[in-house]
Amino acid sequence: MLESVPEPAVPDVLAPSLIGRNGLMLALLAVALLLPFVVQNFLIFQLTLVLVYAIAIIGLNLLTGFNGQFSLGHSAFYALGAYVAAMLMDKVDFPYPATLPVAGIACFVFGFLFGLPALRLEGVYLALATFALAVATPQILKLSPLEYWTGGVQGIVINKPDAPFGLPLTQDQWLYFFTLFVTVIMTVLAHNLVASRTGRAMMAIRDNPTAARSMGINIALYKSLTFGVSALYTGIAGALGAIVVQFVAPDSFTFLLSITLLVGLVVGGVGWIPGAFFGGAFVLFVPNFAESISKGLSGAVYGVMIILLIFVLPTGASGLVRAALQRLRAHKIQ
């Protein structure tokens, strides 16, 4: 009985000719670079958060979409990354860009270690263990012996960085470009990882562990490594999120954050890396939209949307894009 995640988006349709694809990427990047000069500061801030969520969702996608492991506990890795960054800046005056690699490495180690026992857990059991991790995280962050470092319930407030080199940018614009820079690097790395020998091993384990093992893939190693890399992505997103929001507190990292990331993953499409951007935009803007429909019922509207999505569009944005491309191609052939 092999109950794995939905089939990944078929690459042949989503990967048109190399020039066409690169051209599309460059055009999107150009739009992303121009956006902060035409929209309001608050929208820039929101777009920055979309990118932060997108990095975290890519991390979750590497684990769930490409390796077939579940996690409801990614809020814990996000929290760890955010706290590492905040503590380094608050206590030892680390420059903010330098906190990202430290947060990433800390999360990689933690994720790898958590992934070791998780090796023996499959499907719903792993969801359960990571669920417990997510629920326990805020309590651990509030722990009184750690209060000197974590700030307890109050959390830590961070200063907003100015644009360096005297660039004529507002703080929000600068943070947006900084985040965009990190996002592009992380996306390219994820794309290359999935396309590599390692990525094929990850997908082989997802599709058929027994066959993967008989082909000489070290399942234990790859599974824990994937857990580590996934945590690393989410931790870097957490560190970026802390810098952007300028504040970390235990109650920002509840189970709800894990839900948010999971929803972003499902919306964007499981096993399709660019889907993370659709997912990130969805989890940031749709709750606001839901709140505008009815203030008290925002959670309910959000929940109904999740369920409808699973019913109507189980492949998420990747399915939509694929259908659109297929139609386009059929048009061309005629």
């Binding site: 939905p6 409801l72 929803v263 499981v270 109904v304 949307m305 999740i306 369920i307 189980p314």
Partner: peptide, 12 residues
Amino acid sequence: APVLSHVAVFIG
């Protein structure tokens, strides 16, 4: 449907 769909629906 696969496990992930169930988990998402329960979360919803």
